[in-house]
Computed example of a mutant assay.
Amino acid sequence: MTTVTTYRSPLLDRLPGAVPADGVDAGVAAHYGDLFREQRALAAGQGFVDLSHRGVVTVSGPERLSWLHLLLTQHVSALPAQQATEALILSPHGHIEHALYLVDDGATTWMHVEPGTAGELVAYLQKMKFFAQVEIADATDAYAVVFAPAGSTPPPAAAVRQLPYGYDLFLPREEFADALAVADSGPTAGIWAYEALRVEAHRPRLGFETDHRTIPHELGWLESAVHLNKGCYRGQETVARVHNLGRPPRRLVFLHLDGSEESLPAHGDPIRLAADGPDGRPVGFVTTAVRHHELGPIALGLVKRNTAVDATLLAGTVAASQDVVVEP
């Protein structure tokens, strides 16, 4: 369960034009006055995104990687230092509970998670510690996460997750605002620009593309966050069974929305077959809808596996065509 926080990033008061985000992303800027300029800058490898509202958890100790290997969906027992990866923690029935974005610096494993979820994650990890030689800490109050796109020059960081599309930086909180203010990092971008590029890249996000019964197969997380040839972990039976049968109940789709509509569908709005009209039976729901600087209004959604891949859909009341993300 996400914990509501009253966090407010210092960049909201220090950078001109900052407009606060709301919902789970409250505490950082939605944008700094020009959404599309901010998106174009990120796409060109310039700027940075303040993700300091996200939770930070660290695990240290000589057995940290072998111990995490037993709990996570990802193979991390021999994870090389500075190699970024992502992993999930599943329920006993294989439903997604946590999504972790992590890197090991040779002494400590650093991970960031959704805002307000670090405490719950730490509580679970502590419960599973037993006699392992590990130290688990909620480092959210000490470290802030910042994203810098590929091509930018990131400021010094305690740890860096280097990704194909950029960097996740773990910066000491007392330094991160000053470090970014003096860094030659280009225009600042808000969370809306970051989310638009995430949707364009079909990257799922916990709490947006997931609900209480989501399994990894539905979102394409098998490719990036699940290792199919490792030992047991909680929920593995479901992962193996659905993978072998090839029949996840739902699938992620990318939606091109009708650009003539002024408003975007909201998270949770029903997706219906356009042929059935606005009163038809829902076949899924909208997960994230954004405005993209090149593609216009776009969205991700979850639909029933047997929904025809060439069907025209209604996302809320907005007409939408679909691109396949997860094969039925």
Rank of each mutant, 00 (worst) to 15 (best):
R173V: 03
G45D: 09
R37N: 05
T6E: 08
F130L: 13
G17P: 03
Y194W: 12
G284E: 04
E200F: 13
V24N: 08
G151D: 03
G166E: 11
T188A: 15
G119P: 01
G301L: 00
R281C: 02
P297D: 10
A299L: 03
V318P: 10
V49L: 08
P249Y: 12
Y233E: 03
V24M: 13
R272P: 02
A240F: 06
Y143G: 10
A159C: 05
Y233L: 10
E135S: 09
D258C: 03
M128F: 15
E174F: 05
F254T: 07
A84Y: 08
T73M: 03
P149M: 08
L11I: 11
R8G: 14
P249Q: 13
T238I: 12
H292C: 00
A159E: 02
G33A: 04
A266Y: 12
Y194R: 15
E195W: 10
E120A: 15
A240D: 02
V113Y: 03
L222N: 11
V103E: 12
A41R: 07
P249I: 11
G280L: 06
Y101D: 15
A150G: 14
H267S: 10
D25G: 13
E195Y: 10
F170R: 00
H95D: 12
L125V: 06
G220R: 12
L163K: 08
V19I: 13
S77W: 13
T188G: 06
V76H: 08
Q126T: 15
T307C: 03
E135G: 08
A81H: 08
I298E: 06
D34K: 06
E86W: 01
Q74I: 07
